[in-house]
Structures are given as C-alpha cells and as structure tokens.
Computed example of a mutant assay.
Amino acid sequence: MRPAVHLAIPVEDLDAARHFYGEVLGLEQGRTSSHWIDWNLSGHQLVTHVVARARAQEGASEVDGHHVPIPHFGLLLSPQGFHELADRLRAAGTEFLIEPYLRFPDRPGAQWTMFFRDPCGNALEFKAFLDESQVFAR
C-alpha cells in the first residue's frame, strides 16, 4: 500500500458535510455512522466527525498579497482537475476566500490556487502546479 494521509476534521452538521464533500466536491463516501463519515480524498482518508464546538481561533499568513487562512488543508490536483473543481464550486454557489488564480507566475513553484470554507467553517485550499516537479522548488 502506498503511503496515504489520514485527516479528521470537525463538523457541526453531518448532512451539510455529506452534501458538500459528497456532492459539491464529488468525493466518494466510505464507511459512515451517525456521527462520522469517511471520504476518499484521492486515495487519502478524510473523516468528518460531528463535534459540538465553538469555532477554533484562526490566523492568517500573508502569501502573494493574500491573507491565507491558517489552519487549512487541501489537495494537489492536475491543472485540468483544478479548473473543473473551480467550475463545480462556482456552480454550487461556493464563496471563495481567495478566488482561483495563478500564484507565482514565471517563478519556481508556479501554481493555480483557491481557498474556500466547507459549511462548518474549515478552510480548504486546492492547487495545481504548472510543473509537478516543482512542488518543493525554491
């Protein structure tokens, strides 16, 4: 088995999470219970757990003239997959924290990126490198 990431995130409404992660993002649903759902995030396990909570304190980091929400998680996609997801998010009426744009053009690590929140306030970033060999380029 190839190494994969397991990520558990809090959600307040499992039905809203089911709609967003399953229908809007198009993730395949795995095991489920009355208080959690496993999702296939491109071979990685993402688990949405119901947690009654106040929203966590968040920060931001300045990157390329934008306030990037911290913490956040996401996925590296192909450029085609990135643009298809951006179109699907727009069609679903998703409000972007940072609209899809090309970050660091003409520099090592040039990438398409976008930020948005799930219905429970978790920040997500999806990106696509123009050259996948430059994911860790300096």
Rank of each mutant, 00 (worst) to 15 (best):
D38P: 00
L25N: 03
L77C: 11
A92L: 14
D87H: 15
R53D: 10
V24T: 13
L46G: 00
E62Y: 06
G109A: 10
G109P: 08
D118K: 01
F126Y: 07
N122Q: 02
V63N: 08
P119C: 04
E28D: 11
F73T: 01
Q80C: 11
D87S: 15
W36V: 05
P3M: 09
L46E: 02
T32C: 02
R2H: 14
P3C: 07
R2E: 14
A4N: 13
I70Q: 14
A4R: 13
L76W: 09
H67D: 13
A16G: 07
E12M: 09
L25M: 14
V135I: 09
F73E: 08
D118I: 00
I37N: 00
D131F: 01
S33N: 08
Q57A: 13
P105R: 04
F115M: 07
R90F: 08
G22M: 07
W36Q: 06
G65H: 13
W39R: 05
D131Q: 04
V135E: 01
P69D: 10
D38Y: 03
G43P: 08
H35C: 05
G81R: 11
D118E: 02
A16E: 08
A86D: 06
R138T: 03
A54T: 12
L102T: 02
L14G: 05
W36M: 08
T113V: 09
R138S: 05
A56V: 10
P3R: 10
S61C: 12
V50S: 03
G30K: 08
L130E: 07
P100V: 06
L27Q: 02
S42T: 09
P79N: 14
R138I: 02
I37Q: 00
A17D: 05
V47D: 04
F129C: 00
L14C: 06
I70S: 09
F126P: 00
V5L: 15
K127R: 02
T113L: 06
E62C: 06
E132Q: 04
L102G: 04
